[in-house]
Design a protein around this nucleic acid. Structure first.
Lengths: 282, 282
DNA sequence: GAAATTGATTGCATAATACGCAATAAGAAA
DNA sequence: TTTCTTATTGCGTATTATGCAATCAATTTC
């Protein structure tokens, strides 16, 4: 009796793990499906979404229930995440440090993109560099640990501009807008007024990438992306910079790698918890 | 060649699930072991704790890594919980009605009290921040999503100290008591010994408010209260914090608002169902 | 209320793979 | 550089996960 061949549909969990256990891979894809529902789900819903026969899914769910990761509601018969899922997750949250985890892989990001890379967090002085990898080509730069950036005139600053709640930004943004207006500065993609700032930040959040069309530091190009938490707030900005303007091209490999890096280090919010849009109210 | 018979040692995960999948049961017991470490662990540590051969555990970990539930640190080779575990946890928390309802009104609490506000749930690493509102005045803080707190030296920790059953607290409390005693630390309202802890927790449960007389973080004051379920067990701690020490005054409006908030989000246990005092047996 | 339909759960034969064990590779210590 | 320790991988086979059908349970229809 032949087993059905593996489905060729693009599975987000990406099929089987080399050196892993196939049954476990399949089971974990079921757990992921269970997680992706907004709330309790029927066996047939789960099986349909997982692309598996209900009897197979039922056995996986039996084990998840036994382990406390899932529960079956008595009245409706629906399955939901169990207490152990919360405990596992909160343990993971308590061990998650966005800066440390991004730092662990920053060297590799710099190496594969061929750019210098930095991490910045928000501080009293604005976006502040907390970690930096020089990468293969960077020779000299004044940017180093502790460097800060303006909000409007740097890729990193624009990322914070796009994700921080207004109260945190207010004074600093106001100062920069006034300064730019008083010396008649504007950018191809930004005029120093609130409407233009709003349009730019909407674009940055949509595209998950920021840059400055023009130059912050002569001879340097930079792109930046946000690592966000489950409230949709920015935790760290990841920035690539180097001397080649092709870094700014929409199809540059580094750009894709950066967006991917930031996404891999972000924790996506579920629909219900707080900000359903994933973006702080502005 | 016979497979080794199942270990007769009392496995907390309770062996195999009727109607489940044995490999999955075993793998999930490994995941539970990984969770139980305070941080990254070596393969041999995990295998020893799980009572399994390292090669078997390695294969399970390969699948967990593939699914994003675990990561292996490049430098140390140690294994830790991954991003998918965190996202699973956030999803599971978002199905906890106590957390969801408190989250829905957290922003308002922060606004009306003028303080930053946070929600913390218990994890293996202690009280862990799962939700946070910065409020009108907080600009920078090292407290963020995923932050954990000590039991004795934080308002949030003291709330959990007052409501969690002793077995859950035992190791962590013991460590903190020993550490405080060894460096000669004490607080105006707490000496590092069990009797003093008992008196403090009784007071906290009576008043439904906890704070630290002294400072956990210099310049920050915090008060915390428990949201409890129908069995009188703590589900979430709600904490207000800010830079003004008047937050700690017994007549401060924020204090009253916090106690009211927690009470409104708690379920009063029915008097006829056991614990009429609403306190878990200690 | 009975019959039909739908969804959940379980039994069973067997194809598939999880497993133990040993070998190999990689990393750390001397 | 050598030795020791830990992590990872190969492989034969014993074990079990699986597909399919049957059974059970719940819901819907008449």
């Amino acid at each position: 009796m032949k087993r059905t061949p593996p489905k060729d549909t693009g599975e987000e969990s990406g099929g089987t793990a080399p050196g892993g256990i196939q049954a476990l891979d399949a089971a974990l894809s079921v757990l992921r499906v269970l997680r992706s529902f907004d709330g309790p789900a029927t066996l047939s819903d789960i099986a349909r979404e997982a692309g598996m026969p209900p009897s197979k899914v039922h056995r996986y769910l039996a084990s998840f229930i036994h382990a406390g990761l899932a529960v079956q509601k008595e009245r409706s018969g629906r399955y939901d995440l169990g207490r152990e899922a919360a405990e596992l997750g909160v343990a993971a949250i308590s061990r998650n440090n966005f800066v440390v985890r991004a730092s662990d892989e920053l060297e590799e990001l710099a190496a594969t993109t061929g750019q210098a890379a930095l991490l910045a967090v928000w501080s009293h002085n604005g976006p502040t560099v907390v970690r930096m990898e020089r990468g293969p080509h960077l020779t000299t730069t004044s940017i180093g640990l502790g460097s800060t950036f303006p909000l409007l005139d740097s890729a990193t600053g624009r990322v914070f501009l796009s994700y921080l709640p207004s109260p945190q930004l207010a004074g600093r943004l106001q100062n920069e807008l006034e300064r730019a207006a008083s010396v008649g500065v504007s950018w191809p993609d930004l005029n120093p007024n609130p409407e233009s700032v709003e349009a730019l930040t909407t674009k940055i959040r949509r595209e998950r990438i920021a840059y400055v069309d023009g130059r912050y530091i002569p001879g340097l190009s930079a792109i930046s992306s946000a690592i966000t938490n489950w409230q949709g707030e920015i935790e760290v900005a990841v920035t690539l910079f180097g001397t080649h303007r092709d870094l700014l091209q929409p199809d540059s490999p580094a750009r894709g790698a950066l967006i991917d890096f930031a996404a891999r280090h972000s924790i996506v919010p579920p629909a219900q918890l707080g900000n359903s849009s994933g973006v702080p109210e502005r």
